[in-house]
Design a protein around this nucleic acid. Structure first.
Length: 635
DNA sequence: ATTAGGG
DNA sequence: CCCTAAT
């Protein structure tokens, strides 16, 4: 099963033109006021639009057929989409206006194409509110992709709730479960905020500067009705769905679907390299069931920097606020663009403010499973994707009056959240953690060595990186400050600031602070696993025979020279395992078999040096003893 | 930076 | 392969 991001990591954010944050903010803000949805376009939307334009172009130009080759078949389109690229010869480049879309305008989107999808300086697409938009046409042009006919209202909901969370599109042999928001209108497709580069790139992160965002932190977001049960549930799921991992160190793997194949799959820059190499193209109907949970904010380097400035997803509390005395239950309002919105019920009683987040939508969740997949496996797939998304850790940010509240110590009343009328402006954001996100050193590893051998790995890898780019559209609409360096807030404290008062609504989902000390910055990647070859083992054994175990630095220098990927710690570890391997029966050994001859040498050397060290130790002891009692026992 | 050892 | 503690 595969849960993956539709778009892969091949985005080139760096080349994406951006308007100054200030201007973007401004725009967003005003458009928000006007209720106009900006950049509320999903990848599918964009692609559909692009396709539409391409098709239109073709229709109007009988000589430009070549330019549409890539879009003629859904196969192609789907495949490309998965790469995160929309390859076009850009026959209709001009269709994408460079002019700012009707930002800030309250004018309803016109019916013409350009207003439907236009590229602002800011690279934000302005789009007609989902329903009945042009996309439908584009979609239709791509039979099988997301045409109305094929789109089904396959819904998933959290066990405890009835929330519709996704729409499933049948895509030639596979299902693509797109986003989530409940789309009453069958024509509606998940709305996200991808950006389309003029060169055809589709970028997922909309809002901000396309910076990848992440639920990067450790604090966890737990949807619950009964948090204990829920946690158990998640745990259970994790256990039952995750394949066993050998390396103890892979424990964290469980946290991400992506890790299905272990963290061996690096999610750093290499993702890009690899992506390019294999194109990250996964046949839409690959026989292999793969499951990509994308984990948006986990991947990479390329986006890391920018990610710093990103404030991530926004849990937007537009409406749905109600006081405790209200008879009517909190009304959940759909954010126009769908993704991850949360209706928050606020109950006021004197100095107390209670929150009840009715729902949290998970944005952009793409799942691909073969038609032959069972419902059960589909459930698991969805579960994995969702779990991976949540489990990966996110921190919560609070937005008051549209501004980010940085001071975790300020009270709600001081922040202006004590008054009900202001609660309407309360917002939450899912964002990267407090940890510094230093630009990770790029490992220059042998490209051949690191070249993945399994296409699945590549796919997952890219899927993982891609996910990283997911950004809730709304964030762009919220004028909170974006201060990268100053972003020192502690996620944990942030979370604590929001004390869930659960049970107001039994089925309400609440954000629960989840204590977990961040051990490792998410941006630090686990090295890719590189099994020692017999040759390497031989070299290692040889060196140890001569130098003994313990002088790893020398061993490294001697047998591995400048092999940057083999550190002395690696050698030490390898020796450790070799010794162990040599001590067990051949039947218990795994991995590439090490010649018994070598293992015998390992045993011999180990024995030898062990005794040697004992002797040394003994000598030392003797020397010490002598030093202390130089003249020996005098009594 | 190395080494040692637990995870 | 990671993480720490101790050198």
């Amino acid at each position: 099963m595969v849960v993956k991001r539709m778009l892969n990591c091949d985005f080139d954010f760096s080349t994406f033109p951006k308007a100054p944050r200030s201007s973007r903010r401004k725009v967003s803000s005003s458009s928000q006021r006007d209720g106009v949805v900006d950049c509320g376009m999903s990848a599918i939307d964009i692609l559909a639009s692009v396709a539409e334009k391409l098709l239109e172009e073709r229709e109007s130009s009988s000589t430009s057929t070549n330019a549409f080759q890539g879009f003629n078949g859904q196969d192609h389109l789907v495949g490309k989409m998965k790469q995160g690229h929309v390859y076009t010869n850009n026959p209709c480049k001009s269709d994408f206006s460079h002019q700012p879309a009707n930002l800030g305008s309250s004018k309803p989107p016109s019916d013409d194409n350009t207003s439907d999808v236009s590229l602002a300086n800011d690279c934000i697409f302005k789009q007609t509110p989902v329903s009945g938009c042009k996309r439908a046409r584009g979609v239709k042009a791509l039979p099988g992709w997301c045409g109305n006919k094929k789109k089904e209202g396959c819904h998933f909901h959290v066990e405890s709730g009835e929330e519709e969370t996704c729409v499933v599109n049948n895509v030639e042999g596979g299902l693509i479960i797109a986003d989530t928001s409940s789309f009453k209108d069958p024509n509606q497709l998940p709305v996200q905020q991808p950006l389309v580069h003029l060169d055809g790139h589709v970028q997922l992160s909309p809002g901000t500067d396309g910076v990848a965002n992440g639920y990067r932190n450790r604090s966890k977001l737990v949807c619950r009705d009964d948090d204990e049960n829920h946690r158990k549930y998640y745990k259970k799921c994790n256990k039952s769905y995750r394949p066993p991992l050998t390396w103890a160190g892979h424990r964290r793997v469980n946290k991400s679907v992506v890790t299905k194949y272990g963290r061996a799959v690096p999610r750093s820059t290499k993702c890009f390299e690899d992506t390019k190499t294999d194109g990250c193209v996964k046949a839409p109907h690959s026989k292999r069931n793969s499951c990509y949970g994308f984990n948006p904010w986990k991947d990479e380097t390329v986006h890391r920097k920018r990610r710093l400035s990103d404030k991530g997803l926004v849990l937007h509390s537009d409406g749905g606020l109600t006081s405790e005395s209200d008879t009517n239950p909190p009304v959940k309002e759909e954010s126009e663009n769908g993704a991850l919105s949360a209706a928050i019920g606020v109950h006021s009683e004197e100095s107390r403010v209670k929150f009840s987040i009715k729902s949290l939508r998970i944005p952009e969740l793409f799942i691909e499973v073969p038609e032959t997949a069972t419902v059960g496996s589909l459930k698991r797939t969805v579960m994995e994707a969702v779990t991976a998304l949540l489990d990966d850790g996110i921190s919560i940010g609070v937005l008051a009056q549209g501004k980010k509240v940085r001071d975790d110590n300020s009270t709600l009343s001081q922040t202006g959240l004590s008054r009900r009328e202001n609660l309407g402006n309360l917002g939450f954001t899912l964002e990267p953690g407090p940890e510094k996100l230093p630009v990770p050193p790029l490992r220059s590893e042998n490209p051949i060595m690191s070249k993945p051998t399994e296409s699945t790995k590549l796919s997952e890898r890219s899927a993982a990186s891609l996910a990283e780019n997911c950004v809730e559209n709304n964030q762009e609409l919220l004028p909170y400050q974006i201060d990268v360096s100053a972003d020192e807030q502690q996620p944990s404290s942030d979370s604590r600031a929001l004390v869930p008062v659960s049970a107001l609504e039994p089925e309400a989902l609440a954000i629960v602070p989840f204590e977990e000390k961040p051990k490792r910055t998410e941006n630090s990647q686990r090295r890719t696993r590189r099994p020692f070859s017999v040759t390497e083992v031989e070299a290692l054994v040889h060196s140890v025979e001569e130098l003994g175990a313990g002088r790893w630095r020398d061993v490294k220098l001697r047998s591995f020279g400048n092999a940057s990927h083999r550190t002395y710690v690696d050698l030490k570890d390898k020796w450790k395992t070799l010794v162990h391997t040599a001590s067990i029966s051949p039947q218990q050994r795994r991995g590439e078999p090490v010649p018994q001859e070598l293992l015998d040498r390992v045993s011999a050397a180990h024995r030898h040096w062990s005794q040697h060290s004992l002797k040394q130790n003994g000598k030392h002891q003797a020397a010490l003893t002598m030093a202390i009692e130089p003249s020996g026992p005098s009594m």
